[in-house]
Design a binder for these strands. Structure first.
Length: 258
DNA sequence: ATGGCTGAGCTACTCAGA
């Protein structure tokens, strides 16, 4: 089974890119972030023709997350945490794998910059609420796959110039600590587990020639609970979509399980 | 290098992204 996560930076501006991509990579489930559309503006019919059911948590202009899926997703939930600003940043649901329910959690973590503003406080509170909620979920179900745009650079090797990002909300130590706290609950960063030393990125800015210079960062992740780890087969950052016409600034990360 | 570029909403320009 192929599960893929991609911050598309507008589902409507990226429609052709997404359609081409799913035709070539054929994900069973695609986690989308930053769809930047309300539910009624989501191109559900187009994806239906391509063979996918849409599960959408939209918002006007900003944020928004969704699943596209070939298989049924049960118990879809739009209020995973109490988001004080009511931003559409998490959609979760359950799939059946060999008679077990596996919880899928698709997240778009707040950016948090600049760090001397309320935005940084919001990111910290958001991550605290998220981590607490994971504790609750773990009591009921220990089969969990969390993926999406974490807006967190886990370690120095995950960014082209770590010094430059020391005081950035994506790399600041207190944020990375919250990521580690989450992992310490019993999760594995699958990319880093499989690729111990590899330096690959999932995001490159649109400006300053970041893409051709490979000035990127690894901020999109798959975390699987340790119950799920034995069924993980492979993970791949697919850089091809980032090099195409009118690309998103993020590129997809592809997980193979079972 | 707090600029650079891109998208939404709207129709001039701001806000947000990372």
């Amino acid at each position: 089974m192929r599960i893929i996560s991609w911050n598309v930076n507008s589902v409507r501006a990226r429609l052709d890119n997404i359609l081409n991509y799913i035709k070539s990579r054929k994900p069973d489930i695609l986690f989308l972030q930053e769809i930047k559309a309300q539910n009624q503006d989501f191109p559900e019919e187009v994806f239906k023709e391509a063979g996918y059911t849409s599960y959408v948590f939209g918002q006007k202009s900003y944020n928004g997350v969704a699943f596209l899926s070939k298989i049924e997703i049960l118990n879809i939930n739009y209020d995973f945490i109490k988001d004080k600003l009511n931003q559409a940043r998490i959609i979760s649901g359950d799939i059946k794998i060999k008679k077990n329910l596996v919880k899928l959690i698709n997240i778009y973590v707040p950016n948090g910059n600049p760090i001397d503003t309320e935005k940084f406080q919001y990111k910290k509170r958001w991550l605290d609420l998220f981590n607490k909620k994971i504790d609750e979920i773990l009591k009921k179900n220990s089969n969990i796959i969390i993926s999406g745009d974490f807006n967190i650079i886990p370690e120095e090797i995950d960014v082209y110039d770590s010094k430059r990002y020391e005081n950035d909300a994506l790399f600041k130590l207190e944020i990375r600590k919250k990521f580690r706290e989450l992992i310490n609950k019993g999760f594995t960063d699958v990319y880093r587990y499989i690729n111990k030393k590899k330096e690959e990125y999932t995001f490159w800015d649109y400006f300053a020639g970041s893409w051709p210079k490979n000035h990127g960062m690894r901020i999109d992740h798959f975390l699987v609970s340790n119950n799920i780890l034995p069924i993980v087969k492979n993970i791949n950052i697919n850089k091809k979509p980032r090099g195409e016409l009118k690309p998103s600034d993020h590129t997809p990360i592809e997980l193979e399980i079972i």
